[in-house]
């Protein structure tokens, strides 16, 4: 149960960031609430790497910055398509390989794909993803390769 301290710190930080009331009574309530949430989390059998991925916060943050850039680019691309659908709309399905990733990395990869407008993950499983894309790409696997590598690095710490 090495994930309990991580979740404890994260929940406490969340409470303090939201609350802004520093008196002893409120801090006592905070402690009770965090403990109750932890008990519920364990009781619901959620405790684990996915419930508490906070030890990977720094690589995730670096990845998020890169992802924001991608989101801006794809927002513009989809905006262009909305203005001129008949010329640019070429929907296709792409099957991507996600073998050997943890569940967290698969979810991160799939969510990054969905988060960038123009691509949405239709099906996600441990071994691969099925992606629906709005535009034609030059090479299907090259196109998603940077995101696949970077999300793997962010979630699992390997390239």
């Amino acid at each position: 149960m090495i994930y309990v301290p991580g979740l404890f710190i994260a929940l406490t930080a969340l409470w303090l960031a939201l609350s802004g009331h520093g008196e002893a009574f409120m801090l006592g309530l905070a402690a009770a609430s965090v403990c109750l949430s932890l008990i519920l989390t364990m009781r619901l059998r959620l405790m684990g790497r996915e419930a508490s991925p906070y030890h990977r916060l720094a690589p995730m943050a670096r990845y998020a910055v890169w992802l924001m850039g991608e989101i801006v680019k794809s927002n513009l691309a989809v905006l262009h398509t909305i203005i001129e659908p008949s010329a640019r709309l070429r929907p296709r399905l792409v099957a991507l390989d996600a073998d050997g990733r943890s569940e967290l990395a698969t979810a991160l990869f799939a969510n990054s794909i969905t988060l960038t407008p123009g691509t949405v993950t239709l099906e996600a499983a441990r071994d691969g993803l099925l992606v629906h894309s709005l535009h034609e790409g030059a090479d299907e696997h090259e196109e998603f390769a940077p995101m696949a590598a970077k999300s793997l690095l962010a979630a699992d710490g390997r390239g």
């Binding site: 969340l14 409470w15 609430s33 932890l38 996915e50 419930a51 569940e103 799939a110 993950t121 499983a125």
Partner: peptide, 29 residues
């Protein structure tokens, strides 16, 4: 069975629970 949903749920449910208690404690403010 989709890892996307199970990961999101695992991540979010503890936070939602904490938020519920937060809302209770700050009801007077």
């Amino acid at each position: 069975g989709s890892p996307v949903l199970s990961v999101a749920a695992r991540l979010l449910i503890p936070i939602i629970c904490l938020y519920a208690f937060y809302v209770l404690a700050h009801g007077e403010f």
